[in-house]
Write a protein that binds this DNA or RNA. Structure first.
Lengths: 223, 223
DNA sequence: TTGACGCACGTACACCGTACGTGCAAGCCT
DNA sequence: AGGCTTGCACGTACGGTGTACGTGCGTCAA
């Protein structure tokens, strides 16, 4: 469990932290579509317009949600480890978002954050790569590659149905598709609509780490 | 340019195709946030509720937009080519979405489509991979990897700011970040806030194709 | 004590999705 | 031809949305 993000004071005065906590809670319970200023206010037992004393508008509030969730990921970095292990750890830390805040994942992924919370993972990743001997351009390239992979993977994992959907196990694929039109899809349907997200993520991660390692000519040694 | 999607009849009666065309146009001109049933109706010079004779609700309308955009990608497949070339072509075709319909990209990516339009690219990809000798599991794995990469790359490319933002060239990074807190980000700022999306995409694509090729032990030959 | 200020709150407005009812035109069956 | 069904454009209405603005109350500084 991530570090109990904003240390929400459960009572007393309103605050940005309490509002964000309520918003995150609401998103996780009922989905992003259920979020409205009125809903959050009523959740907090407070007038709607009171929120605007702590948050400029709804969009900024959602940015705050994304930022808070992102800053809640636990990056445990071991500067002594091999760069491949460090990258692995950082990527997995990112994926924790999809576990702890599945309904918020879309928010985090769909707004780029220029705040500290958004820059910190970038800084860590770049430090790791540069420490492993990557040049500036190579490091940025590799980082972008990892981010694209992680973002794409998380979106697949959270299913990204807007409101409902616990996780939609059997997504009405099988026997629904015409085997004449889509022979491969039809034949592979069992494989397609079941997905071990963890295994899939780990597979892609290893593939990427190894590929980037050999690309930069440091598949083995280095530090 | 994609194939003039629904062959919109410019006048006469209302139709699902005309509504979808108007919606796509509106999204591209003013962003997804500008889309409302009233807005689309007034765009078409028609009463709001007339739309509901052709579309069950707004959500389905947006699904239709995503589906239409997706079905507009030009997949030119050469069954005789090497599988690596075919995969390259398919990935690039996908990326065309971000060029022709940048503001719609988020819609396409954020709703999974179980329709023909959504299944066709999957079918094609699986067919080429299986034709190259990939087993069922390997093919599905590889496909998921490619999709994650492509989705992540497209999201980065379209910037994914909800409404405005032409593309935000210099995104207020440089001289904004504290070099003491984020030394790497600060040092690499010029590299970070400029991005040749095409080159970046091609780099990742080659990396992935090569990695998946060697992973499956068919880096060179095969067919 | 008095003034300023922070902040919770109510009201109001423009806009949203859409349920429901109405009326008109075209096509079908006797 | 007369009647009926059906399809479709449209208006009205309801509950919900973000938020601009004004008001009043508490707590501090002078």
């Amino acid at each position: 469990m991530p570090t109990e993000l904003p240390t929400e004071p459960p009572t007393g005065r309103l605050s940005r932290a309490r509002i964000l906590a309520a918003a995150i809670d609401l998103v996780e319970r009922e989905g992003a579509d259920a979020v409205s200023m009125r809903r959050i206010a009523s959740e907090l037992g407070v007038g709607v317009m009171s929120l605007y004393n702590h948050v400029p508008n709804k969009d900024a509030l959602l940015d705050g949600v994304a930022e808070t969730v992102l800053s809640g990921v636990e990056f445990t970095d071991d500067p002594g480890a091999h760069w491949t292990d460090r990258v692995r750890m950082q990527a997995r830390a990112f994926r924790q978002i999809a576990h702890h805040y599945p309904r918020c994942t879309m928010l985090v992924v769909s707004r780029q954050l220029h705040s500290h919370a958004g820059l910190l993972p970038v800084e860590r990743a770049l430090a790791t790569l540069r420490g492993a001997g990557f040049g500036g351009e190579d490091a940025v390239r590799a980082l972008r590659m990892f981010i694209a992979f992680i973002v794409g993977s998380l979106l697949r994992e959270v299913g990204v149905t807007p409101t409902f959907a616990p996780v939609h196990a059997g997504t009405l694929k099988a026997e629904e598709v015409d085997p004449a039109l889509f022979p491969e899809v039809s034949a592979l349907a069992p494989l397609l609509d079941s997905c071990d997200h963890e295994a899939e993520f780990e597979f892609g991660l290893e593939l990427l780490i190894q590929a980037i390692g050999v690309h930069a000519g440091r598949g083995e040694g280095a530090r």
